[in-house]
Simulated scan of single mutants.
Amino acid sequence: MTDTSQRSRPLRVLAAMSGGVDSAVAAARAAEAGHDVTGVHLALSANPQSFRTGARGCCTIEDSRDARRAADVIGIPFYVWDLADRFREDVVEDFVAEYEAGRTPNPCLRCNEKIKFAALLDKALALGFDAVCTGHYAQVILREDGTRELHRASDMAKDQSYVLGVLDDRQLAHAMFPLGDTVTTKEEIRAEAERRGLAVAKKPDSHDICFIADGDTQGFLANRLGRAEGDIVDESGTKVGTHEGAYGFTIGQRKGLRIGTPAADGKPRYVLDISPVDNTVTVGPAAALDVTALTAIKPRWCGAAPVGPGTYTAQLRAHGGETEVTAELVDGELRVHFTEPVRGVAPGQAIVLYDGTRVVGSATIATTARREAATA
Rank of each mutant, 00 (worst) to 15 (best):
V40S: 00
R7I: 14
E340P: 01
H207T: 12
G321W: 05
G215T: 02
G245T: 02
R12W: 11
Q160P: 10
V92S: 02
R103E: 08
A222S: 09
T53E: 13
D72C: 08
P268T: 11
Q171M: 07
D205P: 10
T104R: 04
R224N: 05
H136D: 08
V345P: 00
D168T: 07
E62I: 06
G215R: 03
T367L: 10
A201K: 10
D90Y: 13
T60E: 11
F338V: 01
N106G: 01
E322W: 06
D290E: 14
A46Y: 03
M1D: 14
Q6W: 14
P276G: 01
L42T: 09
R370F: 14
G197E: 06
S64R: 13
H174E: 07
R269E: 05
V183I: 14
D278V: 15
S161M: 05
K158D: 11
D231E: 10
H337C: 14
T185D: 09
E333F: 11
S8M: 12
G57P: 11
T250M: 13
I259F: 03
G237K: 03
A263P: 11
A16D: 07
G260Y: 08
F249P: 02
T182I: 13
P48E: 06
G303V: 04
G303D: 01
E89W: 09
A31F: 04
V200D: 06
R371I: 10
G215D: 03
I297D: 12
D168R: 09
V40A: 08
V307T: 14
A157Q: 12
K255R: 15
D72G: 10
K267C: 15
K116S: 05
T38V: 12
R227M: 12
D85W: 02
A175R: 03
T38Q: 08
D82Q: 04
D168V: 13
G20Y: 02
T282G: 15
H319T: 11
G230T: 11
V73W: 02
S236A: 08
A31M: 10
P48T: 06
E89H: 07
A286T: 15
P262L: 06
G39I: 01
G39E: 01
P107C: 01
Y354T: 00
F211D: 06
L120A: 07
V291C: 13
V345G: 03
D216W: 06
L127R: 11
D181Q: 15
S45T: 07
A153K: 00
R52C: 11
R69S: 13
T184K: 07
H207N: 09
G146H: 04
A287P: 04
G128A: 11
L225F: 00
C58Q: 14
Y354M: 00
D82S: 04
T238W: 08
T53D: 09
Q139G: 02
A118K: 11
R335Y: 04
E328D: 13
V359M: 00
I212L: 02
I212T: 00
A263C: 14
A101N: 05
R196P: 08
V352I: 06
K116H: 07
D208G: 15
V21M: 11
